[in-house]
Nucleic acid binder design. Structure first.
Length: 489
RNA sequence: GGUGCGGUGGCGAAGUGGCUAACGCUGUGGACUGCAAAUCCGCCAUUCGUCGGUUCAAAUCCGACCCGCACCUCCA
């Protein structure tokens, strides 16, 4: 069973551990989703793509994955923004949830099993807070409810900090109504003009951390397998979630805590507060979603990933190489059937190479989702495929043994790329249907025939003019022994 | 101040005790081509931040130092 080889880095233990879910065949996973007051930026896109890839790999291994990702649609920043735009805050949040899906879908991020929203879980949240109050972990002051950090003895176990450490470096002003500086709000009393809900403590709204504890409990239970999010969520967000959930349930919240590293710009974190962020949709004006996905997966998810235009260009070229290999594979597969032309040792050698590559891919992913290495395996596959194609050479026909192997290669190629969420086939279809105008295609074919005439006359000035000008229009011609190959770029 | 992460070729990036330090981009030599493009076959780090130490053997372990980043406040 390949399932057994998977190892993941757990922030809780600070090391890689063998992955063993609570249930043998099912993985329950929770990822902290966005606060929806703006379009998502590239930094937000990283965990989306990374953890979507984690999910895909788990599914590939045969697990049923229950994947929950929340939307924070009740929040200070949403309220502020809504005020500026003079619209109800929930309406604003709903708008950006729609926009979120537009971006996530473009990146080929699978929809979660459930995308719960804070605004739709007030009753659950209030019950959760109430439970903490009743158990003595929380106290009420003037309509606010605070979690008393001192009561939870394991506080700090995720971020590996003690309360003393935290207090020593405290940069936040201490609210004198709190018993401890580290105490955090579970419920906040309503302020003038803010959306609020009725609760046992008066009108108010939830604190930030409580939503994830509540919703993960609701959809995944007291204990689940994976909790994921950005590195910056370790403290205080996830630390506080642990405190809330484990205080209430007296059970470990999540078995594995996964955190992705940041996107940086000039070595500095890309963030909304620094203002150095790039909206995903602005980048999508220039690069295909596949390129962005490729770029995001080209570095291990826990490492920082620096962003600049050149890196996307490199990603574009790399992806292009994978796509070209796939395209050539398809082309060869479309050839006529004939006699096998390769020696059986060659066929066998290629078959063995395929197995080896698949093995490498799995080992890479098994090692804490090493997508950079997995991509390297795909490049090896591309080279192998191209080599095989070359060895089939200019033959017009392909034998049945060879065809079988090509078929197998194609399946494997699609399967492995699919784990990374890269859709080789779809992109290919787009290329030839981009204009989806029969007229354009006919005109191009016509120009190609004219060019061939010129070439036959050795009028290379004319033929090169046609090729160069078409290139300027985004149409690439390639001369091959079998004739002209063309495509849109 | 506390806590954590990282420094590998021109660039990006794997590798964490032992075969020739993956893979991609760039550059470059060759094959193919009328020329290209694509593809294929080569080449491009005696060296892994610095200095010590452990070991038969270290980029990989240990110590010190230098540098960069992040968290401790909303942030993926």
């Amino acid at each position: 069973m390949i399932k057994e080889g998977l190892r993941v880095f757990n922030t809780l233990s600070g090391q890689k551990e063998q992955f063993l879910p609570l249930e043998a065949a099912r993985v329950k996973m929770y990822t902290c989703g966005p606060t929806t007051y703006n379009f998502i930026h590239l930094g937000n896109a990283r965990p989306l793509v990374v953890f979507d890839t984690v999910r895909r790999y788990l599914e590939y291994l045969g697990y049923e994955v229950i994947y929950i990702q929340n939307f924070t649609d009740v929040d200070d920043k949403i309220i502020k923004r809504a005020r500026e735009e003079k619209m109800p805050s929930l309406e604003l949040a709903a708008k950006y949830i729609r926009e979120y899906f537009a971006d996530a879908d473009a990146l080929n991020v699978k929809r979660a099993t459930v995308h719960p929203k804070v605004s739709e879980h007030m009753g659950d949240i209030i019950n959760f807070v109430d439970g903490l109050v009743k158990k003595g972990y929380a106290y009420v002051v003037d309509g606010d409810v605070y979690f008393e950090v001192n009561k939870f003895k394991e506080y700090g176990k995720l971020s590996k900090r003690t309360l003393d450490d935290l207090q020593a470096g405290a940069r936040v002003e201490v609210d004198s109504r709190k018993r401890q500086p580290g105490d955090f709000a579970l419920w906040k009393a309503a302020k003038e003009g803010e959306p609020s809900w009725n609760s046992p403590w008066g009108q108010g709204r939830p604190g930030w951390h409580i939503e994830c504890s509540t919703m993960s409990t609701k959809y995944l239970g007291s204990s689940f397998d994976i909790h994921a999010g950005g590195l910056d969520l370790i403290f205080p967000h996830h630390e506080n979630e642990i405190a809330q959930s484990e205080a209430l349930h007296a059970a470990p919240m999540a078995k594995y805590w996964l955190h992705n590293g940041f996107i940086t710009i000039n070595e500095e974190k890309m963030s909304k507060s620094l203002g150095n962020f790039f909206l995903l949709r602005d980048i999508l004006q220039q690069y295909s979603p596949q390129v962005i996905r490729f770029y995001l997966l080209s570095t291990h998810y826990r490492s920082p990933l620096d962003f600049d235009d050149q890196k996307l260009q490199v990603a574009e070229k790399g992806l292009e190489r994978l796509l070209t290999a796939f395209r050539l594979l398809e082309e060869t597969k479309g050839k006529q059937r004939g006699e096998d032309s390769l020696f059986s040792e060659d066929l066998q050698g290629f078959g063995e190479e395929l197995s080896k590559i698949k093995q490498q891919f799995r080992e890479a992913m098994n090692d804490d989702f090493n997508t950079a290495l997995a991509l390297a395996a795909l490049f090896d596959l591309a080279r192998a495929v191209n080599g095989f194609n070359t060895s089939l050479g200019g033959r017009a026909a392909v034998g049945s043994q060879e065809m079988l192997l090509l078929q197998k290669t194609e399946e494997m190629y699609l399967e492995l790329a699919g784990i990374l969420g890269l859709e080789l086939a779809e992109k290919n279809q787009n290329q030839n249907q981009k204009e989806d105008s029969g007229l354009a295609n006919s005109l191009i074919e016509l120009l190609i025939r004219v060019r061939q005439e010129a070439r036959n006359r050795k009028d290379y000035q004319t033929s090169d003019l046609i090729r160069d000008d078409l290139k300027g229009l985004g149409i690439v011609l390639e001369d091959t022994p079998q004739g002209v190959r063309w495509r849109f770029v």
